[in-house]
Structures are given as C-alpha cells and as structure tokens.
Amino acid sequence: MPLRAAILFSALLTVAPPAVAGDAAHGQALWEAKCIACHALDANKVGPKHRGVYGREAGTAPGYSYSPALKASHIVWDAASLDMWLKGPRAFVPGTKMTFSLAQPQDRADVIAYLKSLSPAAD
C-alpha cells in the first residue's frame, strides 16, 4: 500500500465523531457566509455542489473536476470525516484543491448538521 494511502487509511480508522452536537440552522447561516463563495447546493462552482454530500463518497459529484487525491481517497462523507475535512482539508487529504477550513469545532458541527439536513437519506 502506498505510504500516503496507508496514512490516510490509518487516519480514517482513528477518526471519531465530533463531540459537539450541531445546530443545522446556525450551520446554514455559516454555510451562506463562509462556504458560498466556492460552493452552491445544486451547481458545481469552484468547489462541487453540496446537496447530498453527506453520505456521498468523496470525489463523485457528477460533473465536477476533482483532484486525483480526493478521487482516490474513497472517503464517505459522514460526521467524523467531514469534521476532519473541515478542520484541515490538506492535512486530511494531501493534494486536495480544498483550502478553506473552519477552526471552531462548534462551527464545524453546525455546518455538518446543515449538510446532513440536505441529505435526508443519510443516517
């Protein structure tokens, strides 16, 4: 297994769900203030569309040109992986195009709750 894949796999095994509960309403406000520059719900912009991202495998939104690193990651976006991603996307998946991070755990939990609310089929 290549070193990078091994590191990523190891990281995934040790990811724990975020400890804080998310507020989807506040998450929507945060998303509209901080994420909307690069993302839309139903269109690919600088970043991929976000509706349905929770529960989706990384790198699979139709029509978006992902980095090879993210396409090869095989991450499924859930509360734990999204928390790691939003905390430091380039530390989580080296080589990704995503650069923006959310420093505060509560902010991350709120945005994740909002994204989950857009994916009702998710657990």
Binding site: E32, A33, K34, C35, I36, A37, C38, R90, T99, F100, S101, L102
Partner: peptide
C-alpha cells in the same frame, strides 16, 4: 452582497493555507 461576503470570508479563510 452575498458573493462579496463569501469571497471576503474565503480569502480570510485560506490565509493559513
């Protein structure tokens, strides 16, 4: 207004990168 706010936050947010 919405796009400018998003852009301002994006530029601030990527500074550590």
């Amino acid at each position: 207004q919405k796009l400018e706010l998003g852009a301002a936050n994006a530029y601030l947010g990527v500074i550590p990168s």
